[in-house]
Design a protein around this nucleic acid. Sequence first.
DNA 1: ACCAGACATCGACGTGTGTCAACATAGACA
DNA 2: TGTCTATGTTGACACACGTCGATGTCTGGT
Lengths: 127, 127
Amino acid sequence: MSKSQVVVPRRRVLELTPVETVACCSPLMQEPLSGEAAARIAPLLKALADPVRLRLMSMIASHADGEACVCDLNDAFDLSQPTISHHLKVLHEVGLLDRSKRGVWVYYRIRATALADLGALLGGLPA
Amino acid sequence: MSKSQVVVPRRRVLELTPVETVACCSPLMQEPLSGEAAARIAPLLKALADPVRLRLMSMIASHADGEACVCDLNDAFDLSQPTISHHLKVLHEVGLLDRSKRGVWVYYRIRATALADLGALLGGLPA
DNA sequence: ACCAGACATCGACGTGTGTCAACATAGACA
DNA sequence: TGTCTATGTTGACACACGTCGATGTCTGGT
């Protein structure tokens, strides 16, 4: 469990992808969400709220090394390459996927903390 | 395949709200999601992937007794009554909210297991 | 029976979203 | 240089979605 993954330190004040701003919030059930908090979290859920993107996340996450090449993902769906590229972009823009280019190939990797934070927010991780 | 997509995870054969069919699935990261699994889960996330509905869930959940009257919810937003009613319907239809009418008033209640299952699915909580 | 209040439903409008074909870009290699 | 392959981008389309005003449906009280 010591795999190299970028992982962010605790304290940041920078402009970050939306997912970075979620970890702060208490579980959904504890107290009413502010309008701003809801506006920050909703895009993350919206990014996941698509069957194709859900499968993409799942395929990337369960892939060896936790990353997957676009070429592999393309073949797994009966959709055009631009469509897959679009979905990956959506997931990347909200901060759920990291993107790294090696040679001609592009690899996507899930941000472990992102899903964990979202899950905790919904399920109320007992900790 | 043969029937409609009833797909019983365990023993249940009833017609159930979509949320009932989620609990069976292993965390997102464990193995690639099947097309059908993704198609079942996505609507749940889509229901939550809206700032207003997120706040509605949060307000209901954090309310005393875990339920809230529509009249209270209406006042908390700067939206028309039909709009709130619509959002509540969406959440109810996917099985995230229970609905009970007492007198003239309608009360909505969170399905605790629903959010927990979703959270576990995303965050990997091994419940 | 009637009226008033609490919610739901309907129809319509503007906007957002998933998808594709066509095109653009960027490495690798001869 | 030029060509091939892997991805991203653009423009366009149909469809879904959030919102509203108007209307319908209950229920309780007068």
